[in-house]
Design a binder for these strands. Structure first.
Lengths: 122, 122
DNA sequence: TTGACATATGAACAATTATGCATATATAAT
DNA sequence: ATTATATATGCATAATTGTTCATATGTCAA
């Protein structure tokens, strides 16, 4: 930030509010974890994968077929979801079946959908 | 997808499961709206801005001060949040005060935080 | 052990985007 | 009107990331 940047010299910043705001801010690590998690939801392909996994355990080629995606693309994205423990998987012979780790994911997406739908009404 | 890409020729895809999965998938527009919304949460700076706005209405320079960010950076990010109706604002003289549009945002973030915290325990 | 299949992974490229600088706009005070 | 302040915005740059191709790994069957 430039030193001579003149920002709110008189009334502002409203120190009490600023101090309160600072307290509410999550820790650095929480922010990182949160943004990393949201990054995973922030891509169409991954979001579609997550959404179809909400109700069904599916193997990689099921996902390719259901979403009409390249196998390599699907595997790459599944790796990211795996690394962040959003999905779990089990091998059955040559196939590997993926499913969601827990139901927070579903709740987050339905909250977001509610927001979208309310926006749509306006 | 390459034509000769051999993917699950025998048992797979499990057509009934794939069909069910397809049904659960949100529409193209819903996916776009959802991923756009999550993109906004997927950046450290924006996430910090959102988090401090959860409890406090703040003006731009308050945000700069609370988060130690460049004024230009803050304004750019606020523009994105504004365009997606995640925040609202009101002018009071020379200052412009920002706050969250509704409380879905807060709920989404707390759900995500719950997930993070549970992960932390393992 | 050889071949076929299911999935994973490395590398390269294209596309998106966050940031900071410079500057523009908007408001208030003198 | 002019000046100072508060915020917004266009542009350029650097960094991140999604996709694809090529290939590697792992599993099963013959």
């Amino acid at each position: 930030m430039k030193e001579n940047q003149y920002v709110c010299l008189e009334n502002c910043p409203h120190y009490n509010k600023v101090e309160e705001a600072k307290v509410k801010e999550p820790t650095r690590n929480q922010i990182l974890s949160l943004s990393n998690m949201f990054k995973l939801f922030a891509d169409d392909t991954r979001l579609r994968i997550i959404c179809v996994l909400i109700k069904e355990e599916l193997c990689v080629c099921d996902l390719c077929e259901a979403l009409k995606l390249n196998q390599s693309t699907v595997s790459h994205q599944l790796q990211l979801l795996r690394n962040s423990n959003l999905v779990k998987y089990r091998r059955e012979g040559k196939q590997i079946f993926y499913s969601l780790q827990d139901d927070h994911v579903e709740r987050i997406i339905s909250q977001a959908l509610e927001h979208i739908l309310e926006e749509g009404k306006k």
